[in-house]
Every structure is written in C-alpha cells, then in structure tokens.
Design a protein around this nucleic acid. Structure first.
Lengths: 332, 332
DNA sequence: CTGAAAGCGCTAACAC
DNA sequence: GTGTTAGCGCTTTCAG
C-alpha cells in the first residue's frame, strides 16, 4: 500500500486537495457538511497528514526544544510537566535535550543538530552565551532563558539573593554558630548558572546586616552526590561547639546533612537547625525548612514568553522575576 | 536578509543547485576542486541547509526517538549516552521522551505527535503493545524494545531470571534467614516491564533448587522513594532473628536498607548480607554486591538493531539477550 | 465556500 | 563530473 496523501482523501471525498487542507486545519471558510464528509473520508482511509511536508511548507515545526543540564531532579521534572501543560494550549510539543555528555555538547554546536530543528528554545539553568562557541549556532531562533538574567534573551528567574537573605534572617532568630553548604561552582563552564552564588550572597548580606561575622571558613562545598553531601555535613558537625545553624544552598545537600545529624544522635530543629533551598518533594516528607520556588508558574511564564516571541520576534526583551517563599518546617 | 537557499550558493560558486547538493552530501561523483569551492561559498555566505526541506524530500529524519518511563537514573543516563555515541557513527541524533505524566502518555497516542516524527523508535522498559491503545499510533515505524521480550519487535534484554538465580546461589553460600525487597508491580500499566518479577522468579528458583523454604511473607515491596525503601528495610529488620540475607531487586532499594542497617548498628556483610541489582554508580562506592548489566553494550546493540531495521524493514525480528554478572563487594 | 495552480528547498534520475 | 528537470505533500494565494 502506497502512502496516503491529501490527494487520496480529496478523491475519496469528491473535493479538491485545498479543501481537504482547510478541513484538517480548521480553516473558517468551509462548509460544515463538506468538512464532516472529509473528516469521515480521513477516518475511512486511515490517512495521517505528513508532518514533514507540513513543516516544510509552513516553515513551522509546532515544537520547541528544552535544553537543560540534566534530568530526573524534582525541579526539572516539575518544570517539564509545567511547560508541557502550557504548550498544550498552543498545540505544541516539547523535545527534551539534557546535556548529559561532552559529546552532546559538541554535537549541538552544529546549527543543523536536532534541537534547533524547532520553532524555539528554552534554556534551563544554561547560558546560551557560554554554551556556544558562537551564537550563530542558534541562528536567531526565538529563545528564553530560565534561571539566568541575560540582556540578550527573554529570561525568567527567581530572586535567589532574596532567598538567601530570607534563609539568613530566619536562622538568625535563634543565634548560633552558622555554616553554609554550597555547590562548588566551576565558572566559565556552560553549567555555571550562578544561582548558588546568588543564594550565598543573599545569605552573607543578611549576616552582615545583623552585624554577624561570617568567615569563609564556615562555608563548605559539595558535589551532587549523597556521599559528597555527607562529607560536607561531617565537616560542619566536626566544627560544632554548641547549637548550630546551617544553610544548604539546595535541598539535596540538606538530605546528606539530615542523615549525618541523625547518625550523630543530634536533635534537628534544636541542636542543629537547617534551611534548604528548592522545596523538593522530599523536603516536605523530611520536614525540611526551605525556600520554595514557584516552578510551575515559572514553567508557564517561560512558555508564554517563548510563544509570544515565536509569534513576534521583534518584541522587546522581557525579564521576569519570581520571589521565593520560606516554608517553615521541623528543621528550624 | 532573505533566507539563503542552495540556489544562492550555486550562483555564488558558479554551479548548479544539484552540484551543491552533491557537495553537501558527500556524493562520490564530484570533482574535489568544485567541492572545495562550493564549501567555501557556503562558509562565505553562512548558508545552513534547510533541514525541513531535506527531511521532506528524502523522507528521512536522520533522528530516532527514545521513549522511556523516566530519566535521571544512572541506568538511563548510561543508556542515553551509549545510544548517542553509537548514533554518531550513523550521523543520527536522538530525541528523548520520558513519559513523565499522564498528559504525555495520552498526547503520544496521536500518530502525528513529535516522537513519531522520526525514523525509528527505541522503547526502554516500555511495552509498545501495552503503551498504545492501538499500534496504529506508530504506523509501522521501525522499533526496538529494551528490557522486554516481545514477538512483535526486535528486542534486547538482560537475563533477569539468571540474575535473580545468581543472587540466590550467592546468598546461599552463607545460610541464613532470607528476605527480598521488590518493587510493587502494577501490571497492565505501560510501565510493567516485568523485569522485577523475573528477578524474583530466578531467586525463587534458586531457593527451590537448594530445597529451601521461601514463603511470600518474606517478600516486601517498596516504591521508588528512599522513604519507602527504608520502610521496607525496617520491616525486614524487625523480623530478623539472627543473621539475614537480603536480595533487593534493584540497587535503589538496597540504599535504603544500608542506611537502616547502619542505624541499627548491625554489621554489613555479616549480620546482614545484601545483594542488589543494576550495579549503579553508587553501588560501587557503597560496596554493594550486585548484578551488573552491560548497559553500554545494550545501548549499542539496541541502536544497531534499530539502524539495521531502518535500512531494511523486512528483516526478521531479532532478540538479543545479555547475561548479568555478579559483582561481589563488601555487603556479602 | 470551493477549485485551480503555484511553489516552499531540496534531491535524484537522467542526459550530456 | 555537471547540468537539466521533475516532483516530494502540503498550503496558500487568487479566481470564481
């Protein structure tokens, strides 16, 4: 059986191809009966429109690409779901491109790579200006950046500095020896979004405003493995002289700390107070005080900005910032 | 500036469009000098081939879709990297489609959805026959299934039953009260790959062969959260009368168990012996005895089978099975 | 409201 | 080794 085309449908329904096209695409100028007859023919024959032909002809892919450093975290899962949901209103699909390996990174330097075969791009926690050897790669494709403020693209962020500040103020309610567990940020890599540095900056500012000393020696760093988080936690606990306050710049690091606190037989919320950042699903069940980012709203906003820009590329650049909210739970 | 086409390049290089096409596509019938001149023109002008037009014309997308239940686990990350790497030999790209939400699941019932706008499909831990209301959705698109043996598609599996058997035999070396922590498999869902049931089956067989009693009451179930894994672990430890052996049908469940064992002050490898399954990255640092799946080889094989089938859809269905290998570490 | 016809950018016969 | 030409399947003017 040869491939069914719009011509076959037209013949079957006794109309011209252009009329079939109008029926498929919900064009207003079509008689309801004709339309019904055509749709019936389509069902009878089992016709499926050729997406490649349509994309080619209309110069629209009806899809966008989401580029992100990794997948599987609570944050990115929620983000993906929110973007998906919003795209449904536009009848668009999303392709997901986690930059898992060096290979992908270099392969995606090529303007004809898969991710750019699309109507627009979302960069999550990724700075296009650092990601690409040349922005020529993305050929002026509409793009929105999440997590990073940039003058070149629409962007959506959460006020991380404010979040760090809120964490600082909250922990100050119970004065104690104070520590931070932060990610070790390697700058000048595509993955240096700067969000963690901002959180720390806000926290530092809060300490300073309160006239509290906060030396670098009380900041420890961790990688994104539970082992590493626990290492950092142990270093903190080793320096403990009495009650302590700890700000972890993401929830994940707090998980390691909570384990170590339990193991050391210390009381959470008393001897050790902890504030995380992100409000991941686990944070709730662990009773972790943390800063909530409105991920769903952010996903919606990112999608809207992108779809707006796809419609009108000449729009002025927009920058939207959300506020994090402190979720007080048992660890403080 | 209007969009540059192959015609503009042809004019600039003083040749015909077809010659430019030959230059771009490494056609053998072309003079080396002409080719060099054309490629120079392409660089001079900044021409980028129109992928949509090419796809349309050649009826090839030069990309495949990878459908999988989720992302972010060590297993799937390694799988993706291995597939990516193998695809490079074919100059193909991979799109990743984690079935994170119900919305995606229903959206992807539509044959014109994004994932099917591609030359072939890989189903990882997903059974197409259960996934779709009708296989009409994928329109006879070349497909390979990973993790599930099916008569309808090429498939690549690891012998999970053998793995369970090996785990059983290994634990029998030190006779003790024996438990299993398994996933709660909801059958008749798209996500019921059956791999865990097979692992348990092999384990059971090993017990039976050794004439050991192994009642259902010694099998506990867990979900894919650390909390749930720890719950299951506590149930096991509560029933402990002396030394115990535990088989967790995936490494993840073992992580929870290891935590609880430590908390209970028990000695791993002595009072509590544990065998996991998957050999995730963490298993190594935790010293977990486990069954290693050759993920990279599996990814390579899946890709090769798919590319073969894309080249020749009439190929007979092939089924390839790999053997898991026991990695003995400190927990036994 | 429907039909006729042109053409998107590219590739692949077939000439030469 | 290069040119000529037709056409992939669809949408979109423009007529009527």
């Amino acid at each position: 059986m040869a491939k069914l085309t719009i011509k076959d449908v037209a013949r079957h329904a006794g109309v011209q191809p252009s009329t079939v096209s109008r029926a498929i695409n919900n064009h207003p100028d079509i008689n309801a009966d004709t339309k019904a007859r055509i749709l019936q023919s389509i069902r009878d024959l089992g016709y499926i429109p050729d997406r490649a032909a349509k994309n080619f002809r209309t110069r629209k892919m009806r899809s966008i690409s989401l580029l992100l450093p990794m997948t599987g975290s609570d944050f990115y899962n929620r983000l993906i779901n929110s973007i998906d949901e919003t795209l449904e209103d536009y009848d668009y699909d999303a392709g997901i491109f986690p930059l898992l390996s060096e290979r992908r990174l270099s392969r995606y330097q090529d303007p004809s790579a898969l991710p750019y075969h699309t109507d627009g791009l979302v960069f999550a926690s990724l700075n296009p200006s650092h990601l690409y050897e040349s922005l020529f790669t993305i050929q002026g494709l509409p793009a929105v950046v999440l997590d990073i403020i940039t003058p070149d693209f629409d962007n959506v962020t959460v006020n991380n500095e404010l979040g760090g500040h809120l964490a600082g103020k909250h922990l100050q309610e119970r004065p104690a020896q104070t520590f931070v567990i932060n990610v070790e940020e390697r700058f000048h890599t595509p993955f240096a979004s700067g969000v963690f540095a901002e959180r720390l900056k806000g926290f530092r500012a809060a300490q300073q405003e309160a006239g509290l000393d906060f030396p670098d020696s009380q900041v420890f760093t961790s990688e994104f493995t539970l082992d590493s988080a626990r290492d950092a936690a142990r270093k903190v606990l080793d320096l403990r002289e009495g009650n302590i306050n700890v700000f972890t710049t993401c929830d994940f690091f707090a998980y390691g700390l909570l384990e170590e606190v339990k193991l050391a037989g210390l009381t959470l919320g008393e001897e050790v107070r902890v504030v995380g950042f992100d409000d991941e699903k686990q944070a709730q069940s662990l009773g972790l005080t943390t800063l909530r980012q409105p991920v769903e709203e952010m996903g919606r906003m990112v999608t809207r900005l992108l779809m707006d820009r796809i419609q009108d590329p000449e729009l002025p650049i927009r920058s939207v910032q959300f506020k994090p909210e402190l979720q007080v739970r048992r660890t403080t």
